[in-house]
Design a protein around this nucleic acid. Structure first.
Lengths: 205, 205, 205, 205
DNA sequence: TATGAATGAGAATTCATTCAT
DNA sequence: TATGAATGAATTCTCATTCAT
């Protein structure tokens, strides 16, 4: 039974970490990084302020951990779904839909995600390389799929990187809209629209 | 003479306002809203800290004024260029190119613009309605043009709003990339790419 | 009249600095460095807490400034008095008496001075070199005088450095006692005792 | 068997106490009272943080116990050596040498000892009477010996208390120097110097 | 007895805003 | 009108002490 290591401590510790991270995500989503205080987070997590520092070294640390946690989950999910699709058309659809659905359920996380990665331009050097890599990896996965499709002649020759980036951006836009409008359009429809647009363009016949 | 109001005062006042706004834009772009201090802005504007409060009520006020100032200019410019183009294809090209070029020259402004409007999701209620309206108006102009094109049969029947939004998002993505990469691709080429993608999609044939 | 620079600002600034330093000296003397809070100091100085940071960068800065201020005054005074005395006996007396009298009037300062320089052993590297130099200079002045007296045959051949240091230490001891006992022995008597002891020793005849 | 009390418990308890005290002494010496944390001490002692509170009521308690422990040992040693010497000259030498040698081997303790008793002036009321008594007793032992020597005509009539105090202070100075300089002068030489100075003074012939 | 996770009071420092000059 | 010295509310982080296990 001791096979799994010191379960008591470790499980409790992991539980606390998760508790804090979840609470923090909500607070950060509601107030943004600056306006969120350690008191807020401690209160939301139902622990003392000092306890936060037992698990994370600083406010920024908690923030980055929130970010990484969600991003890693999203990335794994997207990679799996995209890989599972055969044709490029389906891969794109999988890419879009996975993200739309993920963020539909993780609205708090989207707010943080968006605030941070949306602003890479404004403050380029603020994020750890590891996190940036994780973020950029998303587009790269799609880019590779598109490049292969070009090579196989499935689609007309386009710059895979820029197209992937365009899809990425439109998806982000759609997700943003879905969060702002509460007019629950179906995720499938939004996804279908993007794929259709990217696939056929708007030009008349 | 008194036709134009108290010219001396007004002109001086406007001059000071512009001076402050320009300085503030640079500071905000460099440091972000939170990290920028009134001392920074006063220093950059070459005035005393107290003077800022003669022209603006708060730090946030200066920020919003910066935003509005640039946004108004961009909006007017875009409207004119889009209106000047005849065919929808050209209107889209004009839309994209105007924005790409504007931000190429107003990089400081782009950083603020992006940070703030990119984050509407995260902090929905923070911006005054007037500013939001100005922002949304950009897409609406494009949307109308697309709707007309649909009505005229210039392009296949698509949801004008969503397409306009997609173009808007891709454009933003491209601009972001241009600021990050210093690999100076030509604005015309980036613009052409977007129009091409939107127009024809990536599907074969 | 503008010969003396911007008097208004400078005088006010110097006044504030002195005010803060005096208040701080009292607080540090009463509570020690660690226990003294910026609130204490601000309260004692009759200014806002933020004001302290207009004149000094940190709590430690205020502390060091207090120390340097008093030390510089003492050093100058001692140097003058010692130089004014002709015979080595009188120089030693001047050295002892100047210090005893100075600290009689600057009890607050003595507490800081003693706490900090008394503890060089415990935390050797904490003080800026400049301050340490100022401190050590005191013994060196005396050492030179003693060495000259040895060279001239005024006194028996002794190690000037160690003797100077011994005088320095006894003086410190006496001052400490004077502050603890409120039994007001006359400074002259204490001074005379030290000189007598150092001069003749306790050996019979 | 029960004559000696609950040996098992008591011995273990004493052992723990000694362990903690030794560890604490090192930590306090290295970091000073304020900067030393209970975590540091617990870590150095190889026990849990909570355990410290089973043996001592507070951080200050541990500190004072460290102090008392070392001071008691020093005091006993000095008393014995001084008593063993016959002539006053030898008693002084014994006094000086015992202390110099003791602190040569207990550098950690010296740092604490010096920091605390060196600062009696700064914070007069901080130490328990018992500890102060123990400290002052050192000088008093010497004072009595000197007074007897005066009474017996061994030395010229001097104020025994002040002379004892002077010797005490010079000795402290020498020890401090020995710890700062690593220029290992022999303890005997330093001791001889002090005795010589105190005995003959520096006056010529 | 031994532990170390949890706590929260407390302190240094920053900075938007005010206001006397 | 212009200034910048003064302010104090607000925030992050530390660490002695407690207490459930």
């Amino acid at each position: 039974m001791p096979l799994e290591g010191r379960t008591k401590q470790d499980v409790l510790s992991e539980f606390r970490c998760a508790e804090i991270l979840t609470a923090a995500r909500g607070v950060f989503a509601r107030k943004g990084f600056q306006a969120a205080t350690m008191d807020d987070i401690a209160g939301a997590a139902g622990v003392g302020k000092g306890t936060l520092y037992l698990y994370y070294r600083s406010k920024r640390d908690i923030y980055l951990a929130s970010l990484e946690h969600g991003l890693r989950a999203l990335s794994a999910l997207t990679a799996a779904e995209v890989a599972a699709a055969a044709r490029i058309e389906d891969k794109i659809r999988a890419f879009v839909l996975t993200k739309v659905r993920y963020f539909d359920e993780q609205r708090d996380f989207y707010r943080i995600y968006h605030a941070e990665f949306g602003n890479v331009v404004a403050h380029p050097s603020c994020l750890p390389d590891e996190l940036m890599a994780l973020y950029l990896q998303q587009v790269q996965q799609l880019e590779q799929a598109i490049q292969q499709a070009v090579d196989r002649g499935e689609i007309r020759p386009v710059q895979a990187g820029t197209v992937a980036f365009a899809i990425f951006e439109i998806t982000r836009g759609i997700i943003t809209q879905r969060l702002l409008d509460r007019t629950g359009s179906r995720a499938e429809d939004d996804g279908a629209f993007i794929v259709d647009l990217i696939w056929k363009g708007i030009g008349n016949r």
